[in-house]
Design a protein around this nucleic acid. Sequence first.
DNA 1: TGGCCACGTCGTAGATGGTCGCCATCGTTC
DNA 2: GAACGATGGCGACCATCTACGACGTGGCCA
Lengths: 334, 334
Amino acid sequence: MATIYDVAKQAGVSAATVSRVVNGRASVDTALAARVQQAMRELDYRPNALARNLRRRQTSIWAVVISDIGNPFFTSMVRGIEDVAQGAGYSVVLCNSDEDAAKEARYVAAALEEQMAGVIISSAGRAANVNRLIEAGTPVVAIDREVRGAAVDTVLVDNEHGAELAVEHLIEAGYERIACIGGPRRLPTAQQRLRGYQRALRAHRRPADDELVRHGDYRQEGGYQAMAALLDEGERPDAIFAANNLMTIGALECLADRGISVPDRMGVVGFDDIPWAHLVRPSLTTVAQPTYELGRTAALLLAERIAEPSRPPSTVTLRTELKVRASSNRPSVA
Amino acid sequence: MATIYDVAKQAGVSAATVSRVVNGRASVDTALAARVQQAMRELDYRPNALARNLRRRQTSIWAVVISDIGNPFFTSMVRGIEDVAQGAGYSVVLCNSDEDAAKEARYVAAALEEQMAGVIISSAGRAANVNRLIEAGTPVVAIDREVRGAAVDTVLVDNEHGAELAVEHLIEAGYERIACIGGPRRLPTAQQRLRGYQRALRAHRRPADDELVRHGDYRQEGGYQAMAALLDEGERPDAIFAANNLMTIGALECLADRGISVPDRMGVVGFDDIPWAHLVRPSLTTVAQPTYELGRTAALLLAERIAEPSRPPSTVTLRTELKVRASSNRPSVA
DNA sequence: TGGCCACGTCGTAGATGGTCGCCATCGTTC
DNA sequence: GAACGATGGCGACCATCTACGACGTGGCCA
């Protein structure tokens, strides 16, 4: 592979001049510049990004650390990030932490070692990882999950409000005993969605029975097990609110296995949409998040922070939207 | 950020010794090594990957170039790649080419500039991109799609056979007029699946009517449009074989919009599974691909090629499996 | 007209942080 | 005493960027 020196020799100039032509920062005589361009074409010269990165002490890569690459919520978000990154001249690296704090820490370490230009993170755990990045001066944006104890740009959705809407909708549809399949207790999104659920019950003077709340792991399997527990233990609910998309799928699976018909004997609303929610039968009522927009916003915030590292961190909260479909349509009791 | 020289000073040794301790290549006296470890901890030393990469003329990153990050087929495949990469000490960068040859070329250029340790690619277009990598000495593995005109390690599934099985199944289920929603003509997978469809028809002496074959873009929208065309133009089929998962979803959507019941009035089999195929009503008969295994195999091949660059390229073909569910269950005519 | 200064260009030389080949040293063993 | 292995330091090297200074030109002022 040709280096900058080969080009310089071919064009009869110094390497510095070639560098100037490549980067367009300083002024170079037009005739010389043309000769350099010519030489670059002839040698099929590609600047060595490694050397440039070392010298500039920074890559042009953004790391995106997410907790589950298989969740369509994240893939759509990543698209939003990618589109902005592309436009701003950055590449995007995807890191899949699998909700594992250790794996997340490894990726953060890698981001530091590789001197990534920025990090967008949906953190599984404590603030330590995020703070490590901030201390090292790496621009960071938290997405989807707020990070307590870290001063960082953040993009969220109104989880509590969305959950409240969902549960209110179930109440208005006539369901009586509404259960909740919550997410992992340590995750802020799970806590907020649970609060929304409780708030709606309280507002409508429904008792908040502890037996009605189960916690899953935000995966399909967890949703299945939580649903099974709700069916087998204690007084059976007639509707459920599930705190994320994959757990909703799991719950539906369980209900199908048990032959419990939705929405007649069990109303179902899930948090976060699924691309084919309307193909599932019955079609699924969901609290839709603006996933693409979430990614876009985070990427824009990151670009701004890179441009202006010292500005105070800001938090953007996007709205959710209740999409009423068939799974929460209780047949009126005659 | 502390450099290797800071650590060397702190431990009272030379930078070379610190390097040896970090990399564990050469033997270092235990006492010295301990002092170095101590100094690294005290200074919170992180090796600068950029400098190492420059010197070694290689990063420890694998680029995975895929054509649609939103397709669960690819996300599962990526998991398989990641797990192997993780174990072998590599990080994985995801590049989303969106079936766009130009975008793909940009990512390939980036992989060359950043001197990626290896590339796994599901190429959208011609062999030029892959050959550029091979010429530069970058280890490459083609996945899911063979690359004609390039001598490269390849991992495929038996597309033709899988498609044949699917169509045979529809024939045996009693469907008469079986249509095909094929993929983009230029893609080898689309060509192979189409051939499997045609072969099955021929074997059962069904006429291969050109009117019964439409081509989509491997996305949901394309499946929807192809289905609509099949319904509106010419003699209507009573079953369809769709050449990938997202187009199957699109076709189902179209059928639902038109009120055409599946499997009574239209049998449906799709190529490639969907995580929640059994939740869609009716549950979906599919040709399942070993997606995770596909990724794993490609990653293993890449690791082998990196270890032994001169070995002749090999091709691995994995088997598909027909998963019979409800969407192809034709009610027997009384 | 001569001298000085500003400015546009361009080359030299170091800096970036690690890695590794080579060589010196030291202790051990035969 | 020679041979050998283990150990650790020196300095070149990776490809690029950039601070600094040199050089030439032209304008302006005395």
